[in-house]
């Protein structure tokens, strides 16, 4: 008798990618970095998470990456219960996420091609496949001609494009961008936002943490505002000014 494949228990609705139910995170007893957060993010959404320094934005991202575990409440991402996920399953979970940081975090001793290929090697993609995928994703971010350049020879905007290419090459379901325009001038920032929008239009859920009001106001996407660890507003289409 053939064995039926083991089905994973359904923890969230089919169209949802992130569910937070009364999620709190405290680093010290009685001092919550996030407090009682309830939200649901659907597949294909573009979400800004905004707030001042110390509002809990970084904690929010770290919880989604399963770098931290909630002190209270339930956190589900892509049908993984992040409160209970086993240590050995974390890598498999993270392969569904792409991450972009403010400081790019590129490997300075490797060129553009190698930085992107690195992400594929880590998830054990065969070499022949890497040689096909990397040029394709570099073309998507507009860096096909600079594949041999070392990060030090690139502008900030170009370095962030490499970081985005590295995040995209493994075809993540969710792209987490932590202040991706924080180190860029306004022109480069808008270029990066255009790229993120294109990625989102192609079906990837984008969650971007920022405190850049101009960008948030210009994009008119869903905006979740955090203040002192509490969600003070969550607008379907809004701007940074909506927080009050």
């Amino acid at each position: 008798m053939a064995l039926s494949p083991r089905k994973k228990k359904k923890l969230m609705e089919d169209d949802e990618v992130i569910v937070m139910e009364n999620v709190s995170k405290s680093y010290q007893a009685g001092v919550p970095a996030l407090s009682n957060v309830n939200l649901r993010i659907k597949k294909g959404e573009f979400v800004f998470v905004v707030g001042d320094s110390g509002s809990g934005k970084s904690t929010f991202i770290k919880l989604l990456l399963r770098e931290l575990i909630p002190t209270e409440g339930n956190l589900y991402v892509l049908n993984y219960n992040l409160n209970k996920i086993k240590h050995r399953k974390i890598p498999k979970f993270r392969r569904n996420l792409g991450v972009v940081f403010q400081d790019f975090r590129l490997l300075k001793d490797r060129n553009v091609y190698e930085n992107v290929a690195f992400a594929q090697r880590i998830v054990e993609v065969p070499g022949s496949q890497i040689r096909k995928n990397v040029p394709k994703v570099l073309a998507t971010v507009g860096l096909a001609g600079k594949y041999k350049a070392k990060p030090g020879k690139l502008s900030g905007g170009e370095q962030q494009r490499v970081a985005i290419a590295r995040a995209l090459v493994n075809r993540p379901t969710i792209l987490l961008a932590d202040e991706p325009t924080g180190n860029l001038d306004p022109n480069n920032s808008m270029e990066i936002m255009k790229l993120l929008e294109e990625i989102n239009n192609a079906g990837t859920t984008v969650i971007m943490v920022t405190h850049n009001k101009d960008i948030v106001n210009a994009m008119q996407k869903r905006v979740i505002t955090l203040r002192k660890g509490v969600v003070v507003s969550d607008h379907e289409r809004g701007g940074y000014d909506d927080e009050d």
Binding site: V99, F118, I122, V123
Partner: peptide, 12 residues
């Protein structure tokens, strides 16, 4: 740290 975020296994 980048490897961890991308999903490298402990072994890798």
């Amino acid at each position: 740290s980048i490897m961890k975020y991308i999903g490298a296994t402990d072994y890798f």
